[in-house]
Design a protein around this nucleic acid. Structure first.
Ligand SMILES: [Mn+2]
Ligand SMILES: [Mn+2]
Ligand SMILES: [Zn+2]
Ligand SMILES: [Zn+2]
Lengths: 144, 144
DNA sequence: ATCAATTTTAGAACTATTCTAATGCCACGA
DNA sequence: TCGTGGCATTAGAATAGTTCTAAAATTGAT
C-alpha cells in the first residue's frame, strides 16, 4: 500500500494545476505549502502554516513560507487580512468575501456575500483602480 | 504679546473638555498629545505624532505616546487603521467613515459616507455586538 | 556536463509595539 | 504640612512578526 491514496494524488494534481494556471513555477516546497494551505478554506498565520507543513516530517524553511505566501498573494491565490500590528491572517479562500473578527475570542469568521458593500468604480480616487476591498467588522461578546 | 492667542486658548479648553467628557484624566502629556492630534482631521502614525509633539521643545516619551493613543482608542476618541503588519494609522476623526488606501503612493484618503456598507445587527455572529466596521479599499494607480 | 537563472535556506537584521521597573506627580487625610 | 497610595511617565530592554543577506541547492536549457 503506497502512502498516497487516489484522492490525495488527485488533490496534488489540482494544486499543481492551480499554481501553473496562475503563472507560478511549481517547486517541491511550493507544492507542499500549497497542499497544506489549500486543503480547506482557512484563515491561517504564517507560522501556523509553518507548523502545519512541517508536522509530517517535511521540512520547509520559514523564509520559504513567507516567500510563497507573498507570491501566492501577488498572484491572487490568497488574501492577506491585517487584524492588527501583530496578527496577519492568510485566507486560502481568495474569492470576494469579508469577515467578522471577535476581539474577545480571536475568531475570524466569514461574512455572507449579501452583506458585502457595493462600490462604484467612478467613486474611486481619480486615476486609480480597485485592488481589494478589505472589510473587517470587529465584534465583541455581548456583556452577560 | 503672549504666545497663546485667544483661538489657541479656546482650542486647549475644548481638548480638555473632550478628554474629560470621555472619562480621561487630564494630564500635562495627554493635553499636549491631544492638542497635536486633534488639531485637525488626520491619519498619523505613532512616531509621526511623537515627532510632531516634540517638534516645539516639549518632551513626551514614546511610551506615553503609545499609552495615550491606546487610551484614546479605548475611549473611542481615535480609530486605529491597520494597513499592514508595519503600518498602523491613528485617525483623529473617529466618526463613522472609511478609507481608500493607495498602495502606490501610500495615501490614505477618506471615503464619502454614502459608500459605507450597511449591516444588520441580526447578521452578526450569535451573542456578539458590533464594535467597529473597518473598511479599507485598496487601490493602485492606473497603468499608463 | 555545463551554465545561468531561480529558489531555498539559516540565521541575522530590522522595527513597530509592548513590557519593565524605577521615578515622578498629585490629591487627600491625618 | 507631611506622608501615603495610586496613577502616570519614562528610558531602555525585550518581544515578535517580517524582511534581508549571502551562500548553497535546484532547475531547465544548451
Ligand atoms: Mn504567529
Ligand atoms: Mn512610523
Ligand atoms: Zn475568509
Ligand atoms: Zn479617516
Amino acid at each position: 500500500m503506497t502512502p498516497n491514496t487516489h484522492d490525495q494524488l488527485l488533490k496534488k494534481k489540482q494544486v499543481e494545476q492551480m499554481l501553473a494556471e496562475h503563472g507560478i513555477f511549481v517547486t517541491a516546497q511550493r507544492r507542499i505549502i500549497a497542499e497544506a494551505l489549500f486543503a480547506r478554506n482557512q484563515h491561517i498565520t504564517a507560522d501556523q502554516l509553518l507548523d502545519l507543513v512541517n508536522k509530517n516530517g517535511t521540512k520547509v524553511s520559514k523564509a520559504t513560507i513567507y516567500n510563497s505566501l507573498g507570491l501566492f498573494a501577488d498572484k491572487g491565490l490568497v488574501r492577506e487580512i491585517h487584524i492588527n500590528a501583530s496578527k496577519t491572517f492568510y485566507d486560502s479562500n481568495a474569492s470576494r468575501h469579508h469577515h467578522f473578527y471577535n476581539v474577545d475570542t480571536g475568531d475570524l469568521i466569514d461574512m455572507k456575500e449579501r452583506l458585502v458593500p457595493l462600490f462604484l468604480q467612478s467613486d474611486l480616487p481619480d486615476g486609480t483602480v480597485m485592488e481589494t476591498a478589505d472589510v473587517v467588522i470587529r465584534v465583541r461578546n455581548q456583556s452577560p
